[in-house]
Design a protein around this nucleic acid. Structure first.
Lengths: 120, 120
DNA sequence: CTACTATATTGCTAAACGGCAAACTAGTGT
DNA sequence: ACACTAGTTTGCCGTTTAGCAATATAGTAG
């Protein structure tokens, strides 16, 4: 049970951190990241995977790139995007586990008969 | 260098993950979390630490509690809040490091004379 | 009950942002 | 040059939300 360090955080630092979270606070952008999770994909492929208008996907890709989460590679007519910041994996992982734990706990609160079900 | 697992994520799961990020995507809420980082604090103390109107801080605390990130304890007139989900520590840590790396890299791109400065 | 303190809630307004549609840019082939 | 394809950008509209101000609740003291 490691003690967590309390960094001193300036106003500007907090703004940057919040900004990073804001970029991730959009289901469509998460879907896009999911679509390029393990390999680079063209915009067309991404659109096919996430299902939205091309203009919107393009805008979201711009936001993700501006934030440094994805990177672009152009080849002829097509543009490939890929994950540029692997910490997105960790962030999603941590959030997923937290949500899972929370929901499990809520289940137990309502229906405690789920015996061997306590947190891993 | 561990390979990252690609979970299959439903629409609903993505919405929940995005929602979690959205809660964190606000400098004032990060400041509040920072104020209760290592110990529980009353609303009054939190207001003193973060510097905002009482109504706003109270509303933000409501959002944080609804999301399960902080927990309430009432004692007489005062209400104490504390971190309820320790993953916020990890999330902030990961984002901080990512931002730090990104900024360092940008520095190097502009002024490459910082010799032994490549990414860890 | 009245007065007071600590916190929460409600209504308002302004700014930010996502989706849509249309126009624009760039690369390819004929 | 023209037509076509892949992506990007721009303008508009509707929703969401943070901050503000005022009101409301709850607990304490007299």
């Amino acid at each position: 049970m490691a003690k967590h360090v309390k960094r001193e955080l300036s106003e500007a630092a907090l703004a940057m951190i919040a900004e990073r979270f804001k970029v991730l606070a959009e289901p469509m952008r998460l879907k896009i990241l999911h679509a390029v999770w393990d390999d680079e994909r063209t915009v067309g492929e991404i659109i096919g995977a996430v299902g939205g208008l091309q203009a919107n996907v393009s805008k979201h890709l711009g936001v993700l790139q501006q934030a440094g989460l994805v990177a672009r590679r152009k080849d002829g007519l097509r543009v490939f995007y890929r994950i540029a910041d692997p910490t997105v994996f960790d962030l999603c992982e941590v959030v997923c586990e937290s949500l899972h734990d929370r929901l499990s706990q809520q289940i137990d609160e309502i229906q405690p008969r789920g015996a061997a079900r306590r947190r891993a």
